[in-house]
C-alpha cells in the first residue's frame, strides 16, 4: 500500500514535533555537560554547548572544593550512599513482607487495615513533618551520625506506595503455586522467598530502583535531620556550594551538580526498561 501525500505530511509532522520537543527537553542537560568544560567567562557567553576553549578547571575546582576541611565531594557521596543503600534494601524487604500479609492471607481486620494502608497514600508528608521531627528529637535522632531518621522508618513498610504496588503484583501471581508448595510442606516464610520473591523479582527491582532515585534526590529529609557539615549528603552539599558561589564560579557548581547525578544516570541507563515498565505496570493496574 502506498502512502498518500497526506499521510506523508502527517508522519513528517509527528517526527518533527517529537524531535523538536525532545531537543527542548534534553538540551538543558546537554548544555550543562558542555558548560562544565567551559571556563567561567564562556559559560554564559552563548547558547552553544561546545566549549571553545575546553578546560577541566570546573572539575578540578569541584573535586578539590571543601568547606573548612570538613566536607568534600567524595565525603558527600559516601554520606549519601551510607543511608540510601540501607534505605533501599529495607524498603524492598519490609514492603514485600507487608504486601505478602495483605495479599496472601485472610484474617479478621485485614480489609480494614488494607483500607487504612491505601488511605495513607493520600497522607502528605508535610502534615507529618513537625511531629516526626519532635518525636525523633525525643529519640535523640536529630543529627544522628547514623542518619537514623532517614532509614529506620523504612524497616516498617512505611513506603506505602511500594507496599501498594507489590500487593497489586502479588495478586496477579496464581495462588495454586503457594498451595502446591504448602502441600509439599513449605511454611509461609519459605513460600515467600522460594516461590513469590523469584516470580516478583522484576517488580522488586523496580521498587529498588525507584527508591534509589527518590532517596538520592531527597532534599527535605537531610535538610531537617543532618546538621553537621561533615555528615552532609550530596543534596545538601550541592545546595551549599551553589549558595556559596553562584554568580562567580558557575563552571565549578555545574560540574559539581553533574558529578552528583552521574551515579543516578548510570543506574537509569542500565535499567531504563525496569523503570518504564515499573511505572506503567504499577499505576495502570491500580
Amino acid at each position: 500500500m502506498k502512502m498518500s501525500t497526506a499521510n506523508k505530511i502527517g508522519k513528517f509532522l509527528q517526527y518533527f514535533v517529537l524531535i523538536a520537543v525532545g531537543i527542548i527537553m534534553i538540551y538543558p542537560l546537554i548544555w550543562m555537560i558542555g558548560a562544565t568544560f567551559k571556563n567561567n567567562a564562556e559559560v554564559f557567553s552563548g547558547i552553544g554547548f561546545i566549549p571553545m576553549h575546553p578546560t577541566l578547571e570546573g572539575y578540578k575546582a569541584a573535586v578539590t572544593q571543601n568547606y573548612g576541611g570538613n566536607i568534600n565531594i567524595w565525603r558527600a557521596f559516601i554520606n549519601t550512599y551510607s543511608y540510601v543503600i540501607p534505605k533501599v534494601i529495607f524498603t524492598v524487604i519490609s514492603s514485600v513482607v507487608a504486601a505478602y500479609g495483605f495479599s496472601r492471607f485472610k484474617f479478621k481486620g485485614r480489609d480494614l487495615m488494607f483500607s487504612i494502608m491505601i488511605s495513607t497514600l493520600f497522607l502528605p508528608q508535610v502534615v507529618l513533618n513537625v511531629p516526626q521531627y519532635l518525636m525523633y528529637n525525643t529519640f535523640g535522632w536529630i543529627n544522628s551520625p547514623l542518619y537514623l531518621p532517614l532509614w529506620v522508618p523504612t524497616l516498617f513498610g512505611t513506603e506505602t506506595y511500594f507496599v501498594y504496588q507489590l500487593v497489586q503484583f502479588m495478586r496477579s501471581i496464581p495462588k495454586d503455586l503457594d498451595e502446591a508448595a504448602a502441600i509439599d510442606g513449605c511454611g509461609p516464610f519459605k513460600i515467600l522467598y522460594k516461590i513469590i520473591c523469584p516470580m516478583l523479582s522484576p517488580s522488586l527491582v523496580a521498587v529498588a530502583l525507584f527508591q534509589f532515585m527518590w532517596s538520592c534526590n531527597d532534599f527535605m529529609g537531610p535538610l531537617l535531620y543532618v546538621q553537621t557539615p561533615s555528615k552532609y549528603p550530596m543534596a545538601i552539599f550541592v545546595k551549599l556550594s551553589m549558595d556559596a558561589d553562584a554568580g562567580f564560579s558557575w563552571n565549578r557548581i555545574l560540574a559539581l551538580s553533574l558529578i552528583s547525578i552521574i551515579p543516578q544516570l548510570i543506574v537509569f541507563f542500565c535499567a531504563q526498561d525496569s523503570f518504564i515498565d515499573g511505572i506503567a505496570a504499577g499505576a495502570v493496574k491500580g
Partner: peptide, 8 residues
Amino acid sequence: GLFFLIPW
C-alpha cells in the same frame, strides 16, 4: 497474615 503485618 497478621504476623507478616506486624512491622507495618
